[in-house]
Nucleic acid binder design. Structure first.
Lengths: 259, 259
DNA sequence: AAACGCTGTTTCATTATTCAAAACACTCAG
DNA sequence: CTGAGTGTTTTGAATAATGAAACAGCGTTT
């Protein structure tokens, strides 16, 4: 495998997880040969890795097609992750309330380096849905949640994003310069909510607020997203107030939990 | 490590996942030494495995305590598992409805060999909760869901359980003989719901029904569980009818989905 | 039918990696 | 200061992963 593996660390384990990364929602099934080709690795290596992971329940093999897909062991381990236990368990009901009140898709996310990670999601009851996936990452600089979380983060974390300027222009509206992003973050901190006006995807608007714990530490972000044509400027205060009430409710239930 | 590893298969990967198994909800944090001791393995082996898994995001290290816990990569991979996507996503709202209607904890589970695996759960609004974990396994022969799923399963799967007789007596009420279990399964098939009368845990009662897809294949099981002292015999038909309505609703939404 | 292209699987010698024991660095308690 | 507990790094020895090639199957094409 011509993957860059760190010396000192266990290469097989790294390979195994790099291999698991190939199983995305877009391509959930892989055969031995195609996967070996795609990873630039030897067939027998992949074959043995797949066989090992299948025996462990990490992958499961489709009898008919002989192809592999992610197995229930990962499902099990994923649910043991403490962040899931601690946060999502007690925040999900609030997300649902907010989603009902706003009638748009609601997300819960945290900052992870220069990206945000979606921890939970409740979809809009309306037809038009947003194609996010729980557990996945998105750049912080071009999402409402990302900018909100950055605005509340310490300067070290902000710098990590600003260092990467010019930032990747996801759409024509994406903020790409460090100066502009700095101004934007200051403004967000000021009014304590963030807006994403089609900065990640044309046609997609998002409003985000921060969630603090009872010690005042930033825990996560809460947002409502919907199609731009459904979004009315005058309704913004309404959205923000519902989101803020949700964040407050989570704060009450979450105690002194920290990331 | 004196773990039994299959020859031919990648040992490091097997070790890595055996190691991950140690991170349970009861003991979510491990240091290098204690984990090595607990697994009967060498410290440096565990050290490098932990370091590798941490670099991959599979584990994360607590700065203060230097201990490790499960990381967000597993959270992410867990949410990519297709069963989660396909089933839980569209069944969760129904579980909530049922939980509201019955006011007891509701579970969704599938049969996996001789055990059931909990895919989803909505807890009772009442104080007394059941200590199940999403993703975890329980023996099929002594749970309502397990007996229900077994009753609908093919004889091969039933035999796998019956072969293990005398079955493990979880409580004094557990069915332990093959003949008795066979009779029980026949009766369950007859009336198309299963009861667990404190067969897994004293004080715990459970009612379960099957969920079929539109082709009539068994997909999963749906159950309501609660403390025995809250359970009234005459309310049973009421519980069953609510569960059955839930199962029917899922059937409508699930199309021809198969395990 | 036979040759082809495509699977997944197995073999085997070479190589590189992982291993375990011990030493090291550090913290905390007595 | 000593001792027992951490996590980390180093060692040579031994194990285990590796890739090329051969194999076995299954359809399609020639």
């Amino acid at each position: 495998m011509r993957m860059d593996l760190d010396k000192q660390l266990n290469g097989s384990v790294q390979k195994a997880f790099l291999l698991l990364e190939a199983f995305t929602l877009d391509k959930p099934e892989w055969g031995v040969s195609e996967l070996a080709r795609s990873l630039g690795a030897n067939k027998s290596t992949i074959y043995r890795l797949l066989a090992t992971l299948e025996k462990l329940g990490v992958l499961q093999q489709n009898r008919r097609s002989e192809k592999y897909r992610l197995g229930l062991k990962l499902f099990e381990l994923g649910h043991r992750v403490s962040i899931h236990q601690a946060v999502v368990h007690c925040t999900h009901p609030v997300l649902e309330e907010v989603a009902r009140a706003i009638a748009e898709t609601v997300h819960l996310a945290i900052l992870e380096g220069t990206h945000i990670r979606y921890l939970d999601k409740v979809e809009s009851p309306q037809g038009l849905k947003i194609s996010t996936e729980i557990g996945s990452l998105r750049p912080a600089h071009c999402t409402g949640l990302g900018k909100m979380l950055l605005a509340c983060a310490d300067s070290e974390q902000q710098q990590a994003v600003l260092d990467a300027t010019p930032l990747f222009a996801q759409t024509a509206n994406t903020i790409v310069s460090a100066a502009a992003l700095r101004r934007e973050l200051a403004e967000i901190r000021e009014r304590s909510f963030a807006l994403d006006r089609e900065e990640y995807e044309i046609g997609l608007i998002c409003v985000a607020v921060p969630i603090f714990n009872q010690q005042g530490d930033l825990v996560a972000g809460l947002s409502a997203s919907g199609p731009a044509n459904r979004f009315r400027e005058e309704a913004l205060p309404h959205y923000v107030s519902i989101l803020k009430r949700g964040a407050e409710k989570i704060r009450e239930g979450i105690g002194n939990f920290q990331l």
